[in-house]
Simulated assay, not measured.
Amino acid sequence: MRDGGWLNRPMCGLDFETTGVDPESDRIVSAAVVLRGGGRPTGRTSWLADPGVEIPAGATAVHGITTEYARAAGRPAVEVVEEVTAAVAAAVADGCPLVVMNAPFDLTMLDREARRHGVTPLVDRCDPYVLDPRVLDKRVSRRRGSRTLTDLARHYVVPLFGAHSAEADAVAACAVTYKIGNRYRFLADTPLPRLHAEQIRWAADQQQGLRDYFARTPGKEHQAATVRLDWPMIPVPVATGSGR
């Protein structure tokens, strides 16, 4: 991939709606890969998967997809995971930075689903430069409050119609990332390999701050151990045997 100039290139946005919030055990329900920017029309590809498990009511309340609908209209999860992974790898090979809001969740989810279904994982196909609008925004703004995609879209004046639709969220994440880079030009002027590496450090610092906050806050101490510092993906857990 060429260095620098990422603000003027197409970005590849990736987003999932899932059965829950644990990327190690939950499943993909819907997915979107979008190509936005670079003077090209926005390209959008969406998938609906039958995750093979029940979709909890709490997850349905967020994205609106029921177990019954996913079973009736969704495609086999293995096909969806293969096609999503291939689409992302193709975009990365074409020079696109990969935009993922809260990257450790979605990229870990994609990785674990690939391994679960015997699909070649993304990390074995390409080495993407990732742009995470949440990490970037936390780096440039010290404002207080929530930083969901809806919050970022409001702050950077980006339309977000149909939040918690994978396609709408992927498009909005790319638009927010563009707005951040355009407003804070030192980010746009940073070559992608370096910016990716900086985000690894920034994300670790940001998560360490959250871990410290939980550790010193009465009633929240137990949450400190749940905060991961990994970015852009949580490493695959090392299997441990009983030994002999």
Rank of each mutant, 00 (worst) to 15 (best):
R2G: 11
G4Y: 15
G4H: 10
G4N: 09
G4K: 13
W6L: 06
N8I: 09
R9L: 06
R9Q: 12
L14A: 05
T19F: 04
T19Y: 03
G20M: 02
G20N: 01
D22R: 09
P23S: 03
P23R: 00
E24F: 09
D26T: 10
R27N: 04
I28D: 00
I28F: 01
A31L: 02
V34R: 04
G37W: 08
L48I: 03
G52F: 10
V53Q: 08
V53I: 08
V53S: 10
I55W: 10
P56W: 10
A57Y: 07
T60Y: 09
H63K: 01
G64T: 05
T67E: 05
E68F: 04
A73Y: 10
V78W: 14
E79M: 06
V81Q: 01
V81G: 01
V84N: 12
T85A: 05
A86D: 14
A86R: 13
A87H: 10
V88D: 06
A89M: 13
A91W: 13
A91D: 15
A91H: 14
V92P: 15
D94Q: 14
C96A: 15
L98K: 14
L98I: 13
V99P: 00
V100K: 09
V100Q: 10
N102I: 07
N102F: 06
T108M: 03
L110V: 08
R116K: 03
R116M: 05
G118N: 03
V119W: 09
T120K: 13
L122S: 15
D124N: 13
C126L: 12
D127N: 12
Y129P: 15
Y129S: 13
V130Y: 12
P133W: 08
L136G: 11
D137G: 00
K138F: 04
R139K: 12
R139S: 05
R144H: 12
R144P: 05
R144K: 14
S146M: 06
S146C: 09
S146Q: 12
R147G: 03
R147N: 03
T148Q: 05
L149Y: 00
L149V: 02
D151A: 09
A153F: 08
R154G: 03
H155P: 04
V158T: 02
L160Q: 02
A170C: 03
A172K: 01
A173D: 01
T177V: 03
T177W: 00
F186D: 07
A188Q: 06
D189E: 15
T190Q: 08
R194H: 13
L195G: 13
A197S: 15
I200P: 07
W202T: 08
A203V: 13
A204G: 15
Q206K: 13
Q208L: 10
R216D: 11
R216M: 12
R216K: 14
K220H: 09
A224W: 11
T226Y: 06
V227E: 10
R228A: 12
P232M: 10
I234K: 10
P235M: 06
T240K: 07
T240P: 04
G241Y: 09
G241H: 13
G243K: 11
G243Y: 11
R244V: 12
